[in-house]
Amino acid sequence: MAALAWLEPLWAFSFMQRALLGCVLLSLSAAPVGVFLMLRRMSLTGDAMAHAILPGAAVGFLISGLSLGAMTLGGIVAGLVVAVASGLVARSTLLREDTSLAAFYLLSLALGVLIISTYGSQVDLLHVLFGTVLALDDTALGLLLGIALITLLGMRLLYRALVLECLDPDFLRAHSPRWSALAHYGFLVLVVINLVAGFHALGTLMAVAIMVLPAAAARFWVRRIESLLWLAPALALSCCVAGLLLSYHADWPTSPAIVLALGALWLSSMIFGRFGVWRQRLVSTVHLKG
């Protein structure tokens, strides 16, 4: 009963129900993307993309004020331009993707700062765009739903190519340049739209966290990609619920509470997971003795 009472706020308030729904949608779409992000060693890409999205959001804001649609669209366009441009540079010049992405996101960020400080009113653009999970309205939830559907569909269609692109990109590129390019750019598109979804729900920092941390934690428990893709969303969702409840019972700000829950899960997985420090050490010492 006590446990039930502790869970009660989740359905007692409609803003909590909305937050929960937002968490479900985001966990379903962002966490699997995070798995591929991790496998491609691009976990820091999220942070770079967050900055790249700024000028698009700024332009959307300048054109139609505090309109969620315009700012989201602008953010997605800017993110995609940067993602595709850096992918293009990585695929056709001697620069690797990390460097070209860093270059493009810096350009984009500088442009965004220029636009905002030259033309913008000083209402906090980032704050308006990058909301809190407690203030999800119907439009924002619809956006999250749409992005989740696109992501799941996209991953289903690109699955084999994505796996190959992660594990052996040279093989894929040699055998099927078309699929290789499709997987590469398609994946970047998924990253960008999931980041924008995450910004609306949970703020910039959160968006990256809900991609990276569940995937990293899941990696300490399972090996196969399929298993990772199931476990990561489940872990993400349970941490979101824990974070929401923590925010309610301990009176903590919601986004940090969720990120801390994710972080705690990751740390404990690292120590106690099947492929974590403890078990691996234990196994190796036993092995030595034997």
């Binding site: 706020p9 007692a12 308030f13 803003f15 909590m16 937050a19 906090d124 704050h127 809190t132 407690l134 203030a135 929401l244 925010s247 309610y248 019972h249 301990a250 009176d251 903590w252 700000p253 919601t254 986004s255 940090p256």
Partner: peptide, 15 residues
């Protein structure tokens, strides 16, 4: 401050 992040408890209290 318009800056500070809201908490779930704070919103529930207001409701």
């Amino acid at each position: 401050s318009a800056d500070s992040e809201p908490t779930a408890r704070g919103i529930a209290r207001l409701v």
